[in-house]
Amino acid sequence: MHASVLRYFIEVARSGSVRKASERLHVAASAVNRQILNVEEELGTELFDRLPGGMRLNPAGERLLRHAQETLHGYQVMRTELDALRGERSGHVKLAAMDSCFEDLLPAAVAEFSQLFPAATYTIVSTQPMEVPQLVASGQVDLGLSFVTRLPAGVVAVSLAHLPLGVVMPPGHPLATHERVALRDCARHPFIRSGAQPVFGPTLSAEYTAFWEVMEPVATCNSTPLVKRLVMAGKGITTFSKLALLDELRRGELVWKPFALPVLNQLQVGIVVPAQRALPQLTQNFVGRLARRLAQLEQEAAAL
């Protein structure tokens, strides 16, 4: 399919309305609707449920959405790599990320990118997961790394990896024998909070938010390395994505178990960028290489 058709489809899926999509795309609503109908005719299936309140993706549409996002992102990566071959190797990368990304993902990505683009400079900010999309939306940074739940207007996820939140404990801990861990089980053990705020709001899981608010932690610390050391020392359990502790899991120094709450097991870590603002060519190239590294870590985590 043509790139413009994919953009029309993605915008309708994002906004849930042909009219809203046309306003954001600055294209006539009739043209957008015609392209959606053409795609459905070409594929031989409807992609949306037409509801009184708008349009909602059906399973076929969700599958096409993944393809469309991957295709457009791959095209942008190819364009930036061609630009790099023409000598466009300087620029500044501004990003914000949750602290877990500073353990493996970002150090490896920046080191690799610096070898290829030695003139690139960086501003990299560590912040709470829920604050990352807001920084991207406000234009304070060009991209972000965080758990992806409900994104603010003007922000889109271009790469996602299944790296959900789980319970972290030392080997030999009573919860280490559980296949999945319930929140009531966590409440029976000393708990170390990795920040003053939960990683998401009550709209995703009121149960987890309530647990976070009523618990009395033995320690609260926003340094991932220190929290891991406290857990290894037997001071308590905590919650992290495997993204934060791949080395410790490989060495058998920590144990990670999924939550018994399905909504938490579906959490994804993603790269978020502005939906409408074009990124500098160097930053787009960085996003592409960061996405590859994120996918690699997702595979490694699944094997642990």
Rank of each mutant, 00 (worst) to 15 (best):
V5W: 12
Y8N: 06
F9T: 02
K20S: 13
E23Y: 12
A28Q: 12
E41D: 11
L47H: 00
F48Q: 01
F48W: 04
P52C: 07
E62D: 10
H67E: 14
L82D: 11
G91L: 04
K94H: 12
D99F: 13
D99S: 15
S100A: 15
C101Y: 04
D104E: 15
D104N: 13
A109G: 08
E112Y: 14
F113T: 00
F113C: 04
F117T: 02
T121I: 11
Y122P: 05
Y122S: 03
T127R: 08
L135F: 07
V136S: 00
Q140P: 04
L143I: 04
L143P: 03
F147A: 00
V156L: 03
A157P: 00
L163Y: 01
L165C: 03
R180L: 15
I192D: 00
R193H: 13
A196S: 15
V199Y: 11
M215G: 08
E216K: 14
P217W: 03
V218R: 02
V218M: 05
C221K: 11
N222D: 14
S223L: 10
T224M: 09
L226M: 13
V227N: 01
K228Y: 01
M232C: 11
G234S: 08
F240V: 07
A244V: 02
R250L: 10
R250Y: 09
R251A: 13
G252I: 07
V255A: 05
V263P: 07
V263A: 06
N265S: 15
Q266R: 15
A275P: 01
A278S: 14
G288C: 02
Q296E: 15
E298R: 05
E298D: 08
E300M: 09
E300A: 09
A303T: 15
